[in-house]
């Protein structure tokens, strides 16, 4: 197994799928000559040429629409948004066109397309460049929503997303691109819709995805060494379809749950997870499920305030203590 970055894992996935299927092409701002704003597409222009690695003008709505049209006639476009913040300009194409085409055509026209790019906050990019959109897209029937946390998951899931016949919203993380991890040399894919237990434990379930998996790990280490509490970390990997079975199985075992996500609290991904748990595992709960989220404010620029805004391991430890009745009430 090679140890590579999340960025290179995505690059490998794109390269392998473009080699595998001539219908796959990459389109977006700066993906070609500039080698990608975050260098995910490094070397692809040279390998596949300008007809398959297409630099676009800054026109998110219409290059997303061009992707949808190409997918409707059988191509498998990968549309890169430089960040998901800019994809708000294209949300009409993602929601009104891509997600609904199969249904409103009575099953005639699938739209096999991947919309991808970094989501969530990086460092001090302030309000308009720091937001996690998982719940926005997960709300829409017809979309798959994927947010991998490790290089291994990123590669396996991107390959599955490209092969999937449905529109996939693929949320990466700017802060994850340099994360290193083991990735097998041989070909593999990871099915969409399967969560992964990243750490086993009997005392509490921590549900997380994308960047918050690292937050959960830090909290779990501290809980183990300081309190002897063994947390089980469930990484959702795919937000929609949600792997309720894995979440519920873990909560049935641990009887308590904390959900960590980068998005805002209101109508967030965690709200959906809580709903699933209270219906499927009500009689197994020893405490209310708690959530740790971004503070309910637009992201401030100030470094100090930004740190307060993002979910952090301290908050997760506190929440675990609370659901474990270890906080002295």
């Amino acid at each position: 197994m090679a140890t590579i970055t999340y960025r290179d894992a995505l690059n490998q996935a794109l390269r392998e799928e473009m080699e595998r299927d001539p219908n796959v092409f990459l389109m977006g701002e700066e993906v070609g000559v500039y080698q990608g704003a975050y260098k995910v597409s490094r070397g692809l222009l040279e390998a596949f040429g300008e007809h398959r690695v297409v630099d676009t003008p800054i026109a998110e709505l219409s290059f997303a629409g061009i992707g949808v049209g190409a997918a409707m006639v059988g191509m498998r476009p990968v549309i890169e948004f430089m960040t998901w913040n800019f994809a708000l300009l294209a949300i009409d194409q993602v929601v009104n066109s891509a997600a609904k085409m199969l249904y409103m055509s009575g099953g005639q026209i699938p739209v096999p397309i991947v919309f991808r790019g970094p989501g969530g906050a990086a460092l001090q990019l302030a309000a308009q460049h720091s937001q996690a959109f998982e719940s926005w897209f997960a709300h829409i029937p017809g979309l798959r929503v994927v947010a991998p946390a490790t290089p291994y998951d990123a590669k396996g899931l991107l390959k599955s997303a490209i092969r999937d016949d449905n529109p996939v919203v693929f949320l990466e993380g700017e802060m994850l691109y340099n994360l290193k991890g083991e990735v097998p040399e041989e070909e593999y894919t990871i099915p969409l819709g399967e969560a992964d237990v990243k750490r086993e434990g009997n005392d509490v379930t921590i549900v997380c995805h994308s960047k918050t998996v690292a937050v959960a790990h830090k909290a779990a280490d501290r809980l183990s060494s300081q309190l002897g509490v063994e947390a089980e970390i469930v990484d959702l990997r795919t937000i929609r379809p949600l792997d309720v079975e894995t979440i519920v199985a873990s909560v049935r075992k641990t009887n308590r749950c904390v959900i960590v996500e980068e998005g805002w609290p209101f109508c967030g991904v965690g709200a959906q997870v809580v709903d699933e748990i209270q219906r499927a595992a009500f009689d197994d709960l020893d405490a209310p499920v708690l959530r740790v989220t971004q503070a309910d404010v637009p992201m401030p620029y100030s470094k100090k305030l930004e740190r307060l805004t993002k979910p952090n391991p301290d908050q997760v430890v506190d929440a675990v203590k609370q659901v474990s009745y270890l906080d002295g009430n």
Binding site: N255, F282, D283, L285, A287, Y325
Partner: peptide, 30 residues
Amino acid sequence: SPLARRLAREKGLDLAVVAGSGPGGRVVKR
């Protein structure tokens, strides 16, 4: 807690005689 209720039911324990240690006197698993 829902779990405590279930356990009490299964073990034939009367919840009214169990002192709750959770918030507001909630009876919990322990």
